[in-house]
């Protein structure tokens, strides 16, 4: 094809794609889409999937130390959900033409990231409460917004995940409420967990809009519907009241209701810490990645055995037919 002709075809494809986006039609796997759209989604969905899976580690650490059988059953169910959510998202990413093997390789090589929040440790039981309430709470705000993302399989995975996540947040809040209704030591533990998780939870929404403008492809193509700061405000506005109800203090002396904006104003976020942790210097980055690599390698025999069993069955079937 002549170069000019080729360019015209590409311009037409982009135009019909953007018209579709304009009509709020979902984009489905077999639809034509710009390379940049596909790449953006693969990066975002695989990062989201990796976050669900890596997020199982800080909580998994507490299964054997849960304070009651009830708490243990709940925590197990929550962690199983996180694994399930990882699978929904890996499936959604696979529809874009990347394999699960490639995604895991990218995680292990550091090419693909996961949410920064999971590089912080869960030091005691109150942290399990804070993770469910604040970390899952922040994730829900983001995921509710992503239910309206333009890529069909991603949107459907988000709808399923949102249905399941609200139990996660409620179980976390219940733990915090129970501790706040307990002894002075328990209240102190709960407040300490709040102090340690509040700021990392706010960082989950990413840099301020001034650093990460709304005009990018993610907005143009409706992958993202709301900006980082809009989502962060939504999270703060609903969480402040929940903290008040159980007597927890938000560790931000600048937090103040702004009548004019209709939102809380908050103090400065320590972005140096954020970038420091992203760049590998958080308390648990190495531990999380080492654990994933080790378990993946140790589980290889299970996948090999499953393949060998299938091969044996197929051979038996073939012999019985001949």
């Amino acid at each position: 094809m002549e170069l000019q002709e080729q360019t015209t075809v590409q311009v037409d494809l982009l135009k019909s794609f953007e018209e579709k986006i304009g009509r709020d039609d979902a984009i489905e796997p077999k639809d034509k889409m710009p390379d940049a759209y596909r790449k953006h989604l693969i990066r975002q969905i695989s990062q989201h999937a990796h976050s669900e899976v890596i997020g199982m580690q800080p909580e998994g650490n507490w299964i054997t130390r849960a304070p009651s059988l009830r708490a243990k059953q709940i925590l197990l169910a929550k962690i199983q959900d996180e694994g399930g959510h990882g699978l929904y998202l890996y499936s959604a990413a696979e529809t874009l033409g990347i394999s699960r093997t490639e995604m895991i390789e990218q995680l292990h090589s550091g090419k693909a990231k996961y949410s920064n929040i999971f590089n912080y440790p869960a030091l005691n039981w109150a942290d399990i409460g804070a993770i469910g309430w604040l970390v899952d709470g922040a994730a829900i705000v983001n995921q509710v917004s992503l239910q309206r993302t333009s890529y069909g399989p991603y949107s459907r995975a988000m709808v399923r995940i949102c249905k399941e996540e609200s139990f996660h947040q409620r179980q976390g809040y219940e733990i915090m409420a129970k501790m706040m209704a307990g002894t002075a030591d328990q209240r102190e533990m709960a407040q300490d967990a709040m102090n340690r998780w509040w700021w990392p939870a706010l960082m989950m929404f990413g840099p301020h809009d001034s650093e990460s403008p709304r005009s990018g492809d993610a907005f143009k193509w409706k992958i993202k519907r709301q900006s980082n700061d809009e989502l962060r405000a939504k999270f703060i506005d609903k969480t402040v009241q929940q903290a008040e109800v159980i007597g927890l203090t938000i560790p931000d002396k600048d937090l103040k209701w702004n009548e004019a904006r209709g939102h809380y104003d908050h103090g400065p976020i320590d972005w140096n810490e954020f970038y420091n942790v992203i760049n590998g210097n958080g308390p648990c980055n190495k531990q999380r990645m080492d654990h994933h690599k080790r378990v993946h390698a140790e589980g290889a025999w299970v996948r090999e055995a499953a393949e060998a069993y299938r091969a044996k069955k197929e051979k038996q079937l073939f012999q019985s037919k001949n």
Binding site: A77, G84, L87, S91, A157, R303, A306, E307, R310
Partner: peptide, 21 residues
């Protein structure tokens, strides 16, 4: 959605664990 499995039985079990909790 989708699951990964080596045979029919594993496909059903993984589908149950992934999509009908």
């Amino acid at each position: 959605g989708c699951v990964h499995a080596s045979d029919k039985k594993m496909a059903l079990q993984n589908a149950r664990d992934t999509y009908t909790r």
